[in-house]
Computed example of a mutant assay.
Amino acid sequence: MIYKFKSKAAPDVIMMGPNGDQVLRLIGREPTAKGILEVADMPAAVAALRAAVEEEDARRQATPEDEADDDGPRGSREGVVSLRQRAWPLIEMIERSHKAGTDVVWGV
């Protein structure tokens, strides 16, 4: 599945299924084909995404590059897309949407 997050306040954000599932779980939502993130829930969603990004960054800093990790085989992390890179467009969308007072939807 591909997620297409939409808002009247920002350009669309498209994510592949596993990445969309991950960010939805991080903001406390079960992955579904259709959904809505209401304005009132946006500050908590942004805080949860930022906390997860910081946690992953700290874990990456603590793990030497030559050790195997969840992201792939031993060796360089070149080419590995971090949660920070994946979540940033959605965080921006949510922040803009919150400021504009408009919901974020997907699958609609």
Rank of each mutant, 00 (worst) to 15 (best):
M1P: 05
M1S: 03
M1I: 01
Y3I: 02
K4H: 14
K4F: 09
K4W: 11
F5T: 13
K6Y: 11
S7G: 03
S7Y: 08
A9K: 07
P11W: 05
P11C: 00
D12W: 09
D12Q: 11
V13P: 03
I14M: 02
M15Y: 02
G17C: 01
P18N: 06
N19P: 04
N19I: 06
D21G: 00
V23T: 13
V23A: 04
L24Q: 11
L24E: 12
L24I: 13
R25C: 09
R25T: 15
R25Y: 11
R25E: 15
R25D: 13
R25L: 14
L26Y: 00
L26V: 02
L26W: 01
I27L: 12
I27Y: 09
G28M: 13
R29N: 07
E30P: 04
E30H: 08
P31M: 05
T32C: 06
A33M: 06
K34D: 09
K34M: 11
I36A: 01
I36S: 07
E38Q: 11
E38H: 08
E38L: 09
V39A: 09
V39E: 13
V39G: 07
A40M: 11
A40D: 15
D41V: 10
D41P: 03
D41A: 15
M42L: 07
P43F: 08
P43K: 08
P43M: 05
P43W: 10
P43Y: 10
A44I: 05
A44E: 14
A45I: 14
V46D: 09
A47R: 13
A48N: 12
A48P: 07
L49D: 10
L49W: 13
R50C: 02
A51C: 05
A51E: 15
A51S: 11
A52S: 13
A52W: 14
A52E: 15
E54W: 07
E54S: 09
E55T: 09
E55G: 06
D57Q: 10
D57Y: 01
R59L: 13
R60G: 06
R60Y: 11
Q61D: 13
Q61G: 03
Q61C: 00
Q61W: 04
A62L: 05
A62N: 04
A62S: 06
P64I: 01
E65V: 04
E65I: 02
D66V: 02
D66H: 06
E67I: 09
D69K: 04
D69H: 05
D70E: 14
D70A: 10
D71E: 11
D71Y: 07
D71W: 08
G72T: 05
R74W: 10
R74V: 12
G79A: 02
V80M: 02
V81G: 00
V81W: 05
S82G: 04
L83T: 06
R84F: 14
R86N: 10
R86L: 14
A87M: 02
A87N: 00
W88E: 15
P89E: 01
L90E: 04
L90Q: 00
I91F: 05
M93A: 08
I94Q: 05
I94D: 03
E95G: 02
R96E: 12
R96H: 08
R96Q: 14
S97A: 13
K99R: 13
K99L: 11
A100W: 13
G101S: 03
G101R: 04
T102Q: 15
T102V: 15
T102S: 12
D103W: 06
V104C: 07
W106K: 01
G107C: 05
G107P: 02
V108L: 06
V108E: 12
V108F: 04
